[in-house]
Structure formats: C-alpha cells, structure tokens
Design a binder for these strands. Structure first.
Lengths: 361, 361
DNA sequence: GTGCTCCCCGACAGCGCTTTCAGAAAGCGC
DNA sequence: GCGCTTTCTGAAAGCGCTGTCGGGGAGCAC
C-alpha cells in the first residue's frame, strides 16, 4: 500500500488469464484479426476493461513489424507557414488514426538528417519533409543515403516544396509560375522599378520564386540588376533587415516602386521596416509576398501575395504518403498559387521627374 | 536483383556476426552501456556502418522498457498561440534528445482523452497537456482515470495553463493577476466603460482572465453587467463575431470605450470587425488582448496585451516533465504576465456630454 | 606454479505482443 | 456411424533488442 514502487503495466497475458482464454485468443478478440466466438470476445473485452489494459505499442510494432506513426520534419513549427501546414497534417493524421512525430530542424540541415535517422529507428510508416531543401550536394547525398534504404525497406517518403532528389511523392507549389504571375500583376499596376527581398540562396524555393519573378518581369523587358536583390534570412527579422538594407542601397539612386518579398514572413518584417523608415505602403512603395499565411490578411495594409492552400497541402502530403504504394512511380501534386491583390500594392507614385515638371507648372 | 521485394532491416545480430562478436557485445559497443575492448568496439562500429545498421527503437523500448518520446497534446498547432509554445517544446526536446509526438485535439475534449490513451500505449516518457482544460466534471474524471494509472506506472505529466486536477507539474500563467493588471492599466488611461470579448465558458483560462479583469475593475468601483460580456469561440472568427455582436448590442446605449478580448487571437478578429464597422481603434475604441502572440506586434495599431513568454513556457513544461521525478510533490511554475501598452489603447474619447458642453462654448 | 582478483565477453532469458500451425470441436451428407 | 469439411482455439515460435549471470583470461603477489 505504502509501497511507492512504480507499478508495472497490465499485459495481455493477464487479460487472457482473467478471461480464461489463451494469449492468442485475447489478441484476436481485441484486435479483431480473426473470428472469435462472441462470448469469448466479450469476456476478453470485459477483462481488459476491468484491468485497464493498454496494449504496448512497442511490442505490437515489434511483433507485427509495422507501426502507425508518421514522422514530420519541418524547419520550425513556430513559424506560421509551417504551423499552417502542420495543422493540415495533424487533421488528416487524426482521420487516418496515425500518430505524428514532429521535429523542427531550426534550419540546420544536419539536424534534418539526424531526424530522418531517428524516424527510421522508430520504423515510422512514412516520413514527411516539409519545406524547402538546400542546394548543397553533400547534404543531398547524405539525405539520399538515409532515405534510400528506408524506402527500399518499405518506408514512404513525401515532401512539400522540395525538389525531390529521390523519387518520392511530392506536393509542389508552383513557385515559379506563381511568382511570374505576381510579376505580371505588379507590372499591370504600372510598376517598372522592382526590388526583391530574397531568402538564403541555398534554398530551392527561393531560387524558384526569384527565377519566376524575373521571368515575369522579362516579358515586359525588365531585368533585375544585382543591387536590387537583397538576400536575408527566411524570417521576419531577415525581411526586416533586408528591407533596411534595400533602403540604404537606394539612398542615392531612384528607389524601386515595388518590392517582392519571397515569403510572407519576410514581407511582414519588410512592412515594419518601411513603416519605421516612414516609407508609406502602398503610396510610396508597393509590397508583395508569397504564401498567404493567415496573418497577412490582418496587416495594415493587408498584403498582396500569392496564395497557397497551406492547410490543404499538409493534408495532401500525408494522404499521398499513406496511400497504397504506387507502382514505383512517384506522384507529384502540383498546387497552383493564386495572386491575391490586396491593399499593400497600388499604382506607383508619379515619377519624380514628372512631379518636378508639374511643380514648375 | 530485379526482385522488387521490400528489403528487410539490418539487425544487430547481423552486425555482431559480421564483427565476429556476440550480440551482447555488439549492443554494449554501440550503446556504451559497458566497457568493451577498444578494438572490438571499432570492429562493431565499422560493421554497423558498412551494413547501414539502424537500431529498432521498438525492440529497444521493449527490452529496456523505456523510451525517449514524449507526447504533446494541444488544441491546434495551427493556432499561433500553440505554435509558439510548441516551438519552445521542440527546441528543448531537441536539446534533450527526445522525440515528440504531437497531437491536436481541435478542441474536442474526447479526442484529448483518446490521445492520452494512445500515448500511454506508446509508453511515452511524459505527456504534456497544453492549453486550457474544460470545466466538465465528467471529462475531468475520465481524463484523471487515464492519467492516474499512467503516473502510477512511472509516467510523467505536465501541463500548461491548466488547473491540474491531478498532482502534476504545471506551468501556470498568472491569468488572473495579469488580467487585473491590465484592467488597472486601462483604468489609468481613463476608461470607465468596458466590455469583454470572452471565450467559451467551459475553459478555465477564460474564467480566470474574466475574473481577474473584473477584480481589477472593481478596485475602481466598476462592474461589468451581463450585457457587456460577449462569449465567442476561442478563434479569430469567434473574436470577430463577438465584436460584431457587441456593436449590435450597444447600438442604442452608450458604447464602451474599451474592449478586452481574453486572447490575442480573438482580439485580432475584433480588430477586423471594428475596422469593418468604421470604429476607429484606438480613437473611438481601445482594444486589448492577452498572450502577446508574435503577430499582434505587426497589427495596425499594434495590440496592447498581457505578454506571456510563450516559447519559454514550452521549454519549461518539457524540462519540468523530464526532470528527476519529484518527491511526490508537484512543481508549479508560475509565469507572470506583463502588461504591454501599445497603440491599440489610448485615452477614451471625451464623453458625449462633455463634448456637447465644449461645442457650445 | 598457485591462488586470487579484476575485466571482458558470450550465452540466454526475457520484454509483450502477433501469427502460424496444428489440433479440437462441431456440422453435414451418406 | 463414418469420413469429410469448416470453424474456432491454444501452443509455441519468433520480432530485435537489453541485461543478467557465469566463465575464461590476463595480471599480480606469493
């Protein structure tokens, strides 16, 4: 009674004994893996209830060599972009009765590999890689070396927003065409002078969005010179710093009339920087982002962006991974990005020369 | 070669054989659980490397009856409040080399119980319950019935923002005094007419914050009548709807000059509602929230709120749970909320009678 | 050389479950 | 009543690992 010993778990064996049946029958009764006389079934269930039996998932996994957990690796759950996708993953996971092991790499490529390895050890049914990969051959090789044996052993891998080096299922936002569409929409508003707040060069998503944006601009014969692309971290602070840098750079020269931040999170930082610097958005400077994370609708002005169905993407990627193994073909789900024009973009202010002209009228 | 069979896993047995040592030695060499001659150790490691050995975590857990996963149950990872806390949990988990199983209940009490049960089956080292509980005796009883045997068997439970029905470790924000402090700060600004946008009655957090706010107001002799407390869902939409309801209710009567939304997420919705209705914040209406989720700093105007160190709370709760088992005493970490006055609150507009007076001057 | 200690290592017994395999029981037609 | 099929149940063999226990060598003092 006063024994403060850690109580041991109730085992299936105890349940079986109490129900007066064999271990095998108890297992079958509880899992419904084979027909068991109704009377016995009830006896077993009753015994399990009374004893408060909870199966040992590890023993089950070991014996049946299968588990119902999936691993999800993202950069940072605290980031609204990943939070939104993770939300979708969780919802779909709940429906399919799988447990999710979540890992945040905090943007350290090495950690991603370490987590894949841990999830392999857990014999996760699937591993989901969320968010842009890195353009680093050594890293790609190591990740591939981790993933390939996993897949060969029957593991499923699916990715979001990542060039699949392996033949994995993937949910791929149309970064390139989305950014191009955005560029066109911005051109249509009348802008001719652009700048880009870009993320780390090694992220493939950054490269795609930047390329797409350039592509769209090029249709109007506009090119971005090196000075008008500022690289920063993939965070609010990165966007803030990049925007400040941009303002410094364009101190002498004519300032761009429109800035594209490659993610909404960075755009949020940029908006703050502009506000602090007294640059009015959109009157003096238009600003656009990418992703349509929920919070950008709450900004003043609300942010023009390329909307991605983040939650749905999360749901898709796990369904993709859990679906019946494809016939060696990897499935790719392309998700279109829709340009949503909000109040953060407007027609550019009249050019300085023009206003000078008018001033002298 | 062309066999498309799912390849089986490399076992420790294979490693041992290849290294020419026994199973036991291989295990010891890899885990460092006992001294092994350096030469053998290297042979084993080399063999493991060559074969690409990945231990089977289930087998390890079964044999050693211990695992390094902790379960985290929250209402919705997509919500910035939980995302922030989860971010902290993930960071601390990474440091302590534990894997996190994350579950979202989507605010269904029954799901929480189901998840606790699943985590019990997983033999999670600890279970963390994040976010307000429900004031529902039947639910509390069931949850207790799930948790008590888990704890008795050596499991650790820790909670954030929840009255612990069991003697569990807890990280408890000072909801009550925080809200009271906020009320005082708001009174100091000159407000006398208040309204509250409240959450679901059954959430304990709501009750505490509401009570604290009332308490603060009472010091100035002010009471909230039933009509000035509007209940809504614990979401942005809930806040939006509640704010609209409030505007409708106060159509005839003098409108409050200051509104307290019991969470920032609701305040975000309220801000949108006020903006749509043409009610200027803070000129015509002051608005304050609670939590200080990251996004409220980006709003226009930035939101006055009671700041909680969300990420740190996440780190604390997992550390609390993983620390050496307390001597039967549960540890409670109280976290103070700090009132942060931002531009969403200001002195109330001059009262109608006053302005009338001045008008006639 | 003998006796003793101290280290390492290997054999083996589980951990708690699933699943195969074979046998018992029951049902059926003749 | 006999042989056959059909249906259910129990015994037992793992799943892959850890941890205990005992033995074999090496090392040392005498």
């Amino acid at each position: 009674m006063s024994e403060r010993e850690a109580q041991t778990h109730v085992t299936l064996d105890a349940v079986a004994r109490r129900a007066g049946v064999s271990l095998a029958t108890a297992s079958r009764a509880l899992n419904g893996t084979a027909r068991v006389r109704e009377e016995l079934r009830q006896r077993v269930r009753a015994a399990a209830d009374v004893l408060g039996y909870i199966p040992n998932a590890h023993a089950q996994a070991l014996a049946s060599s299968s588990s119902n957990t999936v691993g999800v690796i993202c950069h940072d759950v605290g980031d609204p972009y990943f939070a939104a996708i993770a939300g979708g993953v969780m919802r779909a996971a709940a429906e399919q009765d799988v447990l999710v092991m979540l890992a945040s790499t905090f943007r350290e490529p090495a950690k991603e590999i370490a987590y894949v390895s841990m999830l392999r050890a857990q014999r996760a049914r699937a591993i989901l890689l969320i968010g842009s990969g890195f353009q680093d051959p050594s890293w790609e090789r190591k990740l591939g070396a981790e993933l390939a044996p996993y897949i060969r052993a029957g593991g499923r891998v699916a990715v979001v927003s990542r060039h699949r080096s392996l033949r994995t299922d993937a949910v791929l936002p149309e970064n390139r065409s989305g950014a191009a569409d955005l560029a066109r929409a911005l051109l249509r508003l009348g802008h001719r002078e652009f700048a880009v707040l870009s993320g780390p060069r090694e992220l493939t998503t950054v490269a795609d969005r930047l390329a797409g944006f350039r592509e769209g601009l090029l249709e109007a014969g506009i090119t971005l010179d090196a000075g008008s692309v500022v690289h920063g971290a993939f965070t609010r602070e990165g966007g803030y710093a990049a925007a400040r840098e941009l303002l410094v750079r364009s101190a002498g020269v004519p300032r761009p009339t429109c800035v594209f931040a490659v993610t909404d999170v960075m755009a949020v930082g940029a908006l703050a920087a502009f506000r602090e610097a007294g640059v009015r958005v959109p009157e003096e400077m238009s600003l656009a982002g990418f992703d349509d994370i929920p919070l950008v609708r709450e900004l003043t002005p609300p942010l023009t962006t390329v909307a991605l169905p983040l939650t749905a993407m999360g749901e898709s990627v796990i369904s993709l991974a859990l679906r019946e193994p494809r016939g060696a073909r990897s499935r790719v789900l392309r998700v279109g990005g829709e340009v949503v024009l909000r109040a953060s973009t407007a027609a550019p202010p009249s050019p300085p020369t023009g206003s000078l002209l008018w001033d002298t009228c």
